[in-house]
Amino acid sequence: MSHDHDHDNELDPFAARVRALETILTEKGLIDPAAIDVIVDTYETKIGPRNGAKVVAKAWVDLEFAAWLKRDATAAIASLSYTGRQGEHMQAVFNSEATHNLVVCTLCSCYPWSVLGLPPVWYKAPPYRSRAVIDPRGVLEEFGLTLPAATKIRVWDSTAELRYLVVPMRPEGTEGWSEERLAELVTRDAMIGTGLAKEPA
């Protein structure tokens, strides 16, 4: 892609095609450029893994909420106002000593946007998408996560209709912590399953 800006303006071919689509769609009344800016701003700054971290932290301290999340994650998450634009269904999968959960989208890049924002590059790239199912333990080791041999790894393949949120195990030594403090321990990777919640410092 060209980034040669030394003489005059230049649009690379992709940027030019996006502008062409915007022009056509705006003229047809299918999009409003101001609304496009709002969507970009929302996904760049407002929606991100902090949303999911609050869901997990609440599940850690509120057993009733945890049960609801297990039973009907779509409704439990919506009760915190994190509703998916896509109207997709959510399922929360809970890690335990016996089972570790890992989320992938082998087909393309389906991801729980409403609670995690947009997916990281590696989630969308072919190696993760193909290998997470074939060799989940090996993939986790490459992320620096070695699980006990006795821990089963369950891989969940996302679709456009159903997306998954991993609820990692609550770290030890966090008794009595507030939800806000606990949420700080919940990383994006922990909610995809390529990591664990951080240990208290």
């Binding site: 690379d12 996006v18 915007e22 999009i31 496009i36 969507i39 970009v40 996904y43 760049e44 947009l118």
Partner: peptide
């Protein structure tokens, strides 16, 4: 342009 293409799809 990536953000714009994404946002157009959502819209």
């Amino acid at each position: 342009w990536q953000a714009e293409a994404f946002a157009m799809t959502v819209a």
